[in-house]
């Protein structure tokens, strides 16, 4: 696949998490998926994971970088992603002429082809084409958070080969991570408007990331770190069956995953002081 120049200088600066493997080409992406379904057969008891949802304004840069990180991590989380804006806006030739697309009905591929034919040099140099190329290998197109119906099956995403689709067939997630406070506000507000008909709790985090390629890379890495911490805590809780397991633990180990969330976030925040975070427990 196309070499992504933005990744050059980040490969060496990943102290906390092992660098995720480069996104596999779409042709070869089917075998790993097959693998994961067969491993599901072998150990159905062990491959439970938290389900994630990443959100930014246009579902293009920050949320998709995080989508990539989460879906291609060694743990390969189930992940879906959205934008909260009214339209997908990409930079155009000048500040007053952005490229505007509608959510849910435009594919990344379409955007890629259109911008490629418009001015390849410009959109190559500002990184838009590289970004869209990454995105079109991850999923079909940008989706709008406000149009998402939680609980609506997402089988078609699975059949389209979207990355992170395995595990999100049910259309529900355990954790939503937004990339901007505005988006967090929009998500929390929209969940209230949706009326929480599923009665299912969901942790909504915000990790404030500036909207540019470099910060998106840094932020994506930090989000993966947060996801790993959360997932480990959740799995630990799940492994304690019944009362016996409950009695064995002591102190913090006895706390449930949900109770640990503020603590996990605080620890994470200490480590990532430049990505101000926010959290709440909302309902799907």
């Amino acid at each position: 696949m196309a070499f992504d120049p933005r990744r050059v200088n980040t490969g060496s600066t990943t102290p906390q998490t092992p660098p995720p493997p480069p996104p596999p080409p779409p042709e070869s992406s089917t075998p790993p998926e097959m693998d994961s379904t067969t491993s599901q057969d072998e150990s159905a008891l062990d491959n439970w994971k938290l389900k994630f949802c990443t959100v930014c304004a246009s579902n293009n840069n920050r949320s998709m970088e995080a989508h990539l990180r989460l879906s291609t991590a060694p743990t390969a989380f189930p992940v879906i992603s959205f934008g909260t804006g009214s339209l997908v806006r990409l930079p155009g030739p000048s500040i007053t002429q952005p490229n505007v697309y509608s959510f849910n009905t435009t594919s990344y591929n379409h955007m890629y082809e259109e911008l490629h034919s418009k001015d390849e040099r410009l959109y190559r140099s500002n990184g838009i084409l590289n970004m869209l190329d990454r995105n079109r290998n991850l999923k079909w197109g940008p989706e709008r958070f406000q149009d998402w119906v939680p609980g609506m099956p997402r089988l078609e995403h699975l059949s389209k080969g979207d990355k992170g689709a395995i595990g999100t067939e049910g259309g529900v997630v355990d954790v939503i991570i937004t990339c901007e406070e505005r988006c967090w506000d929009a998500v929390v507000d929209d969940l209230m408007n949706k009326g929480s008909s599923l009665n299912r709790p969901v942790h909504v985090f915000n990790v404030d990331i500036k909207d540019n390629h470099e910060e998106a890379l840094v932020g994506g890495k930090a989000i993966l770190d947060l996801a790993n911490r959360l997932n480990n805590a959740a799995i630990t809780q799940r492994q304690r069956h019944g009362t016996e397991g409950w009695a064995n633990g002591s102190g913090p180990a006895r706390q449930s995953f949900d109770e640990l969330v503020p603590e996990i976030l605080a620890e994470w925040q200490e480590k990532n002081p430049n990505l101000p975070a926010l959290w709440t427990l909302a309902w799907l």
Partner: peptide
């Protein structure tokens, strides 16, 4: 703006 996106958005 670090890229054209910020303000345009």
């Amino acid at each position: 703006p670090t890229d054209g996106l910020d303000n345009a958005k």
